[in-house]
């Protein structure tokens, strides 16, 4: 994965637990500044090692960590260099999710080694969305769930996200929400 994912994990730990905890995670994962270069592609094993060490040091199940990290990723991206790109993608939840693939195509043009997931709005009614998700990676469903919760936060909505049985390709998530 790209180093920006590692940077986001680091920032989440720094924001929530402080520098000493991050130093502990770095030592446990055997990582350092060389693995924190945004545009560098690292083997997925490096990322998994980082996630594993973070979960262990924070004493959290990996699924819970992935959920929290997905939610954090949205706020991390909007505060950083990619903030304007998020704004460009959409100003409301429905248009944002509808344009995600479009945005990912633009990202891939600059980061050709990125393996981007695809999102599709299966159904959209007021306060309720069904979003399909497909990726060449497996095991990131809780991260995606966190991302969708992060999007609710971003657009000032309150609600829930749950995975629902899907037929065929990919996974599906149900978002129910209302304005805060």
């Amino acid at each position: 994965m790209y180093g920006m994912i590692h940077r986001a994990v680091r920032q989440m730990v720094l924001d929530t637990r402080g520098e000493a905890t991050w130093a502990e995670i770095e030592r446990a994962a055997g990582l350092g500044p060389a693995e924190m270069i945004s545009a560098e592609v690292y083997d997925d094993e490096v990322t998994l090692k980082l996630i594993g060490a973070t979960a262990e040091i924070l004493a959290e199940p990996v699924d819970a960590l992935l959920l929290a990290f997905g939610r954090y990723w949205i706020s991390f991206a909007e505060r950083g260099s990619f903030g304007r790109i998020l704004d460009f993608t959409g100003t409301d939840l429905v248009s944002f999710i509808g344009n995600l693939d479009n945005m990912h195509r633009g990202v891939q043009a600059v980061m050709p080694d990125a393996r981007m997931p695809t999102f599709h709005l299966v159904d959209s009614t007021p306060g309720r969305l069904i979003v399909s998700y497909a990726s060449s990676r497996t095991g990131l469903e809780r991260f995606v769930e966190g991302l969708l919760l992060g999007l609710l936060d971003r657009f000032g909505l309150t609600g829930s996200v749950s995975e629902r049985p899907a037929n065929g390709h990919g996974r599906q998530f149900l978002l129910t929400y209302s304005t805060i």
Partner: peptide
């Protein structure tokens, strides 16, 4: 076009930070 240039700028910013 907008995404391409913006991503490049964003990555340059990221690299400066790194």
């Amino acid at each position: 076009g907008l995404l391409l240039l913006s991503m490049q700028r964003a990555l340059l910013d990221e690299q400066r930070t790194v």
